[in-house]
Design a binder for these strands. Sequence first.
DNA 1: TATTGTTATACTCTATAACTATA
DNA 2: TATAGTTATAGAGTATAACAATA
Lengths: 162, 162
Amino acid sequence: MSGTTPSEVRPAGILGLSTFLIHKLGAELRRRVAEELVGMGLGPRHHRALLFLATRGPAAQKDISLATDLDPSNVVGVIDDLDRQGLVVRRRDTTDRRRNVIEITDTGRVVLAQGDEAVGRVEEAALRALEPAERDQLYGFLYRMVVSLDLIKPAPNRVKEG
Amino acid sequence: MSGTTPSEVRPAGILGLSTFLIHKLGAELRRRVAEELVGMGLGPRHHRALLFLATRGPAAQKDISLATDLDPSNVVGVIDDLDRQGLVVRRRDTTDRRRNVIEITDTGRVVLAQGDEAVGRVEEAALRALEPAERDQLYGFLYRMVVSLDLIKPAPNRVKEG
DNA sequence: TATTGTTATACTCTATAACTATA
DNA sequence: TATAGTTATAGAGTATAACAATA
């Protein structure tokens, strides 16, 4: 039960691959998140876009693409949907008229809060088997993996002074 | 740098969700595995099926479905492909003629070995950021999560006496 | 020339429903 | 009645290429 026992024995075959477990977890989590969000007219990708916009402020579609792991060609439709529901506003950047500036609305923030709760429930269910310290460890491992695979830039700007 | 520091600070927003990191990792790993396997005429699902058959021995399509996270309707095509390439043989179960018995061939084992190497390279790349002990910890966390979400039965039969 | 957004399109993976042949 | 496999189909999610407007 303790973390110091080296007796973590992996089953032979497919279940012994971390890759497979991540695949399986990813698929199940996506399924559950989608199920939780469907009631509020959102898909997982809409929630990701809203969350990004709420955290980072107004952003170009290119930025959304990079941050949310969405192809630029697919960002179009996601923002279309959110725009149609009044959850974001899309306007041309006055200084660079190639760009759209996307901004979350007050309604968008309300819906996002509901979405966050829904996603939080899924995350809580997924992490239920782990103690709080282990959850942080897991997050740290995942974060380092994602960084080492060059999937995100090493660190956001938030720095806590000394 | 050590594992005892509690200063694992999570960024606000989408990057703070383990759910998102798992999604991102899952997508990237699937992409890389697919890329590695394409040269040998396999997809990730074909590799999973072959690996399962090599580990468990001859099995019904239903078993493959349960073990590899494939819908039964999709197992059909995957086994079709493998059969066509001579990597498995499909024959009717003599005692229950509803069932197919799928068995990996010698050629299948050769191709599987190549596939395992390819997947191993991806797994190695993904885990490069973690020390060996941490890799085992990560695997343990993932395994417990998968079990707690009821995605697999708690333990295979391999038990080490004493 | 390069970049942002857009459109059309296609491919993979996943999921559902209806059917067949067996049990 | 229930189960194993099959077929057809539909829906996400993802990815590519070509284009218009703008830089």
